[in-house]
């Protein structure tokens, strides 16, 4: 195992926004680690209860769009329902006809003021996005903060 793959994710320098790389042994694992990297900018997920199960299904015409839509789901659930994510389970990425489909389950809790998030992510961007699936699994994402 390379040094990189021992880590789930790492942040890189970016003037205005936040840039990270996520690692793993499969596409599913790197996508999950990208979720954890994004969440780490907003709250400590270890402190969030595992009380609510939230099924998630997103689609994308390519892997980049699939990843953006998947990460956006965290922001959507936060804004619309105050849902704070603890972890991702039952993750599956499949190709159906000419699109990618991702099914997963988010575990977490609704924030009724018992949690204090520490930062904000406004949006997931395509800027400098990289998705490697050949020799190794790695994604790079810049998020607007």
């Amino acid at each position: 195992m390379s040094q990189d793959q021992k880590k789930k994710y790492q942040f890189l320098e970016h003037t205005a926004d936040a840039k990270f790389q996520a690692f793993g042994h499969s596409l599913e694992e790197v996508f999950i680690n990208a979720v954890y990297a994004t969440v780490s900018l907003m709250w400590d997920r270890e402190k969030i209860g595992r009380k609510i199960q939230q099924p998630v299904r997103v689609e994308g015409r390519d892997l980049e769009q699939l990843l953006v839509n998947f990460l956006e789901e965290i922001l959507y659930l936060l804004d619309s329902r105050m849902f704070l994510l603890h972890s991702v389970e039952k993750m599956k990425i499949q190709r159906e006809a000419d699109i990618f489909v991702l099914d997963a389950q988010f575990l977490g809790d609704i924030n009724e003021k018992q949690y204090r998030p520490h930062g904000d992510v406004k949006a997931i961007t395509y800027n400098e996005m990289e998705i490697h699936t050949n020799d190794r699994f790695m994604v790079q994402v810049v998020v607007d903060v």
């Binding site: 015409r61 769009q65 956006e72 922001l75 959507y76 997931i124």
Partner: peptide, 17 residues
């Protein structure tokens, strides 16, 4: 807030498609 961010994301995707 989130409403504006969602409009941007929605139309980036719609235009891509």
């Amino acid at each position: 807030r989130g409403l504006g961010h969602q409009v941007a994301s929605d139309y980036i995707q719609a235009m891509e498609n």
